[in-house]
């Protein structure tokens, strides 16, 4: 069993949990992920590691309550436990010899972009953070991100906070203003990562994206998470989750992620909650 040491609601839909998992905490690196299972009936769901404390033996995850499992996890209270928490999985992000990097976070993707920015900042790299949200109410990790960035830019789709527009607009204007980025790291919804990759292609800037296909085991034994990268089949759980954004088939990934849409929608209507006995 894995104990929840602390819990914080970052906004209405996004929750942060610090979980006691000493083995995972000891080895975790930015870009890697874990798989959790809430109880014996639950499915296995991947979440990227948002932070870790090797001394305390804890790992932090930040997630959006979008479906059954994330709602179950979000309903857990401080001091309660979940049955399974396995990791660190996947390959850590390779920072090569970057001097200046733009880290882009879309919505809850900021939770995954944060450890990247933090790691780069710690290495002495110049980090421009560009984050985007639909509106002011769902902004997360503002102070944390500012603390690890050289420049921090915030956009909202409706202009209710920061600059109005998309992260891609901001990125393009920064590139055009003469910022020479060695790499762009983009993490967020698939369309956002796709459009960032399209935006950086003409400038030939190395673009790293963190993919989020459906997973079961997370150890390379099923291929459920397969993605096409540069025309080849890759398993995101062992070869990734980071890939070269210019080579990823984003449309295929989006299609594959839709496989259980109907079942999920049905579940949202009819599933009986194991915690409360209510329909969820």
């Amino acid at each position: 069993m894995f104990k929840i040491v602390s819990k914080k609601e970052l906004n209405e839909a996004v929750t942060m949990l610090e979980i006691e998992a000493p083995f995972v905490a000891k080895k975790a690196k930015a870009g890697q992920f874990i798989i959790f299972r809430v109880d014996e009936y639950s499915e296995r769901v991947p979440l990227t590691i948002a932070d870790y404390d090797r001394e305390k033996g804890t790992v932090t995850v930040i997630f959006q309550k979008v479906g059954l499992s994330t709602k179950l996890l979000g309903a857990k209270k401080e001091g309660e436990s979940i049955t399974d928490f396995v990791g660190p999985l996947g390959v850590a992000t390779d920072y090569e010899n970057f001097k200046k990097v733009a880290v882009i976070g879309g919505g809850v993707g900021c939770a995954i972009a944060y450890p990247q920015a933090k790691a780069l900042h710690k290495m002495g790299v110049e980090v421009d953070v560009i984050v985007g949200f639909r509106n002011k109410d769902i902004v997360i990790l503002e102070d944390e991100m500012k603390a690890v960035s050289t420049n921090y830019y915030l956009t909202t789709d409706d202009g209710s906070y920061g600059e109005k527009g998309f992260v891609t607009d901001k990125l393009k204007s920064l590139i055009e203003a003469g910022n020479n980025y060695d790499a762009v790291i983009a993490i967020g919804p698939i369309p956002m990562m796709k459009f960032v990759s399209i935006a950086t292609k003409p400038y030939d800037i190395k673009t790293i994206v963190s993919l989020n296909p459906i997973m079961i085991d997370g150890t390379g034994m099923c291929g459920g998470c397969r993605v096409t990268v540069g025309g080849k089949i890759k398993f995101a759980c062992v070869d990734g989750p980071d890939f070269d954004g210019h080579k990823v088939d984003f449309d295929e990934l989006m299609n594959r992620n839709s496989i259980y849409k109907e079942r999920e929608a049905e579940e949202a209507q009819t599933h009986i909650c194991r915690l409360t006995g209510e329909k969820r």
Partner: peptide
């Protein structure tokens, strides 16, 4: 067509 929705490995 192996990446289409509905194609599984037997393991999965």
């Amino acid at each position: 067509g192996e990446a289409l929705v509905g194609v599984y490995s037997a393991n999965e």
